[in-house]
Simulated scan of single mutants.
Amino acid sequence: MKVKTVTQKWQAKIFKLGFKMTVRVHNVEISNPRKILFPGSVIRKIDIIKYYEFIAQYILPHLQGRPITMHRFPEGINESNFWQKSAPNYFPDYIERVEVDEDEGTKLYALINNPESLIYIANTASIPLHTWQSRTPKLTLPDQIIWDLDPSDDDFDKVRLGAKLMKAILEELGLHPFLKTTGSKGLHLQVSIKPQYDYDVIKQFSKNVAEFASKEIPQLFTTEIRKNKRGNRIFVDFLRNQYGHTAVSLYSVRPIEGAPVAAPIYWEEIDTLNAQSFNIKNIKQRISAEGDIWKDFYKKPQSITRAIKKLETLYKPILVLKKAS
Results as ranks from 00 to 15, higher is better:
L108K: 13
T69I: 15
L111V: 00
V98Q: 02
T106D: 04
N113T: 06
L60E: 09
E116C: 05
N81L: 09
S80Q: 13
I77P: 01
N114L: 00
Y109W: 14
P115W: 03
N113L: 01
P115R: 00
G65F: 01
E75A: 06
N114C: 01
Y109K: 15
Y58N: 10
V100G: 02
K107V: 10
G76W: 03
I95L: 13
A87D: 08
N78F: 12
E79T: 11
P92D: 08
N114I: 01
A87E: 05
P92F: 13
G65C: 02
P92Q: 13
K107F: 13
N81H: 15
P92E: 14
P88N: 07
L60H: 10
M70P: 01
L118V: 08
R72D: 05
T106S: 15
N81I: 06
R72C: 14
V98G: 02
E116G: 08
R66N: 05
N89P: 04
E99P: 01
P115K: 00
N113I: 00
A110T: 00
W83R: 12
I112S: 01
F82N: 07
K107G: 04
L108W: 06
I59K: 04
D93H: 13
N78W: 11
E79M: 14
R66T: 01
I95V: 15
H71A: 11
S80R: 10
P92K: 13
Q64W: 03
Q84K: 09
L118E: 00
I112N: 03
S117A: 15
P88S: 09
N113Y: 00
P92G: 10
L63V: 07
T69M: 13
E75S: 05
V98R: 04
P115N: 02
N81C: 10
Q64I: 15
L63M: 06
G105L: 06
P61W: 03
M70H: 02
A87T: 09
R97K: 10
N78I: 10
F73L: 05
N114K: 07
Q84S: 13
P115M: 03
D103K: 15
G76L: 08
W83H: 13
Q64L: 13
K107R: 11
L118T: 05
H71F: 06
L60V: 06
E75P: 02
L63A: 04
P67D: 12
L111I: 05
N113A: 02
L111F: 08
S86W: 11
I77V: 09
Y90H: 12
I68N: 02
S80T: 14
D101E: 12
E96H: 14
Q84V: 11
M70W: 02
R66E: 00
N78D: 11
Y90R: 06
N114D: 04
L111S: 03
L63H: 02
Y109G: 04
Y90N: 08
A87P: 02
P74W: 03
K107T: 12
G76I: 07
A110P: 02
L111P: 00
T69C: 12
F82E: 15
I77G: 00
N114S: 03
Y94M: 10
D101H: 14
K85M: 13
